[in-house]
Every structure is written in C-alpha cells, then in structure tokens.
C-alpha cells in the first residue's frame, strides 16, 4: 500500500505535468529552482513554456467555430486602426516635446561611454564636436541651440538617467545629438496634427510641421528635411 501511495503523486506530476514545470520550479514557484532559469531568466523565454503554450491550440474545435469564422472571413477585412498612421519617435529636449519620423532614426545610444571631442577653431553653437559611434566619426550637434530651446527649469531638469544620444540618418551621413529623454516610438494619425499657431515667433516653429497631443502634452512634429538642411548649412 505504501509504495502505491508514494508513486501516485509522483506519477501524476511527472509525465502529464511536465508541462507545468513553471509552477513547480519556474518563476511562478516559491523556490525558482529550475536550472534552465539561469540561462533563460524567465519562463516565457524557455522552449518548454513556449511549446506548452502552443499545445493549448491542439484542442478540438468548438462547435460553432467553423461557421462563425466562415462568416467573418467572407466579409471585407476590417480596416486596421493603425491604417495610414505615421510612425514617429517621440523625445524630449529640455522642456520641449518633439517628434521625428521613425524612418530617419538610426539608433539611440547611451551617452555614458561616448566621448565627444570639440573641434578647434570652430566657434559654433550648433556643431558641438565630433563623436565616435561604433568606430565611425560622426558630427555631434545640439538641437537645443538649433531650435532655440531654453534650458528647462523645475522638475524636468536633472533627469540624467534618461539622457540619450539620438542618431539620425540623412543622405550625407549621420547626425548625433543629445536628448533629455526618449519617450518611444508611436503611431500617430496625421489627422490629429494641428497647424502651428502663426503667432508663435520661436525659431523652433519653422521646423515644426504640426503639433499633436500625446498623453496630455503637445508634441511638435519636426520637418526632418528642413532640419537636416539647416544642420548641413550650420556646419559649413
């Protein structure tokens, strides 16, 4: 009797429930003792977990499933909510929230390991120096000075951990500039763009194609062609 009582829970745990290892030894268990966790960090990266998830789809079809889908597939495809939106990268320079087309974004890098070298005999506020990005020397520019953005005051200053270097592509090469924060890449519908008020006299407004509201703030969508044209002129 005793061996049976012992083997019973073991048998039920072993073959069928190997699929539930994430609850026994994985991240959803108390001890997290699975040796594979060292390599994969989280169960969702583990092949066992992925395959078990796929196996959920090996169920029989529900009764009405086929007819229901036949009706859906017969009708016109519903237009995606993302249809005709543009992909923009949102970032902040001091207190100004700005956006550029994602297509021209090359990469975002941590400014810490980068060393910027100033150029001798160049007294240019916009061209701040040259910088080594992955073994290539790129021009480092200041958006703050190009756009005439004032130094932010108050709580938005001093958030050094969010500072990044943005690298953008142009036909003539790459441009690197520091930003105070990268908000992320979002899809925005062009219909939400508003015109820049004509009374705005700031230099920044000339680069602004439109303004849109995002997360309760106004973001300026910059004209990248004009921006790169101005950058090129400013370094000549």
């Amino acid at each position: 009797m005793t061996p049976r009582a012992e083997t019973k829970p073991a048998a039920s745990a072993a073959p069928g429930n190997i699929a539930e290892c994430w609850q026994r030894i994985g991240v959803w268990s108390a001890e997290k003792s699975c040796p594979t966790l060292q390599a994969v960090i989280h169960c969702r990266n583990c092949e066992v977990f992925i395959q078990s998830g796929r196996r959920l789809l090996d169920q029989e079809l529900p009764q009405t499933y086929r007819n229901e889908w036949a009706g859906i597939m017969a009708s016109e495809k519903e237009e995606d909510e993302l249809f005709q939106t543009v992909s923009l990268v949102l970032f902040r320079v001091e207190a100004e929230w700005l956006a550029l087309r994602t297509q021209i974004l090359s990469e975002v890098i941590d400014p810490q390991p980068l060393k910027r070298h100033s150029l001798p005999h160049r007294k240019n506020r916009i061209l701040t120096g040259i910088i080594n990005v992955r073994g290539e020397i790129q021009l480092c520019v200041s958006f703050k000075d190009l756009l005439g953005i004032e130094q932010a005051s108050g709580k938005e200053t001093g958030q050094a951990p969010y500072q990044r270097m943005m690298v953008i592509n142009s036909d003539d090469g790459k441009w690197v500039f520091p930003v105070s924060e990268i908000i992320g890449i979002y899809r925005i519908h062009p219909a939400t763009f508003q015109n820049v008020p004509v009374t705005v006299a700031k230099a920044q407004s000339t680069f602004t194609k439109g303004i849109f509201k995002w997360d309760g703030r106004y973001v300026a969508f910059l004209d990248d062609e004009l921006l790169i044209y101005s950058l090129t002129r400013s370094v000549q």
Binding site: L61, Y65, R66, N67, W69, A70, M73
Partner: peptide, 13 residues
C-alpha cells in the same frame, strides 16, 4: 512567406 497572403482559421467549407 512571400507568397502567403493571410492565415485564416478553419472555416466551414
């Protein structure tokens, strides 16, 4: 995948 247009669920045929 270059010739796949869509993946549809199993429907009534």
């Amino acid at each position: 995948c270059d010739r796949i247009r869509e993946i549809a669920p199993m429907v009534a045929l």
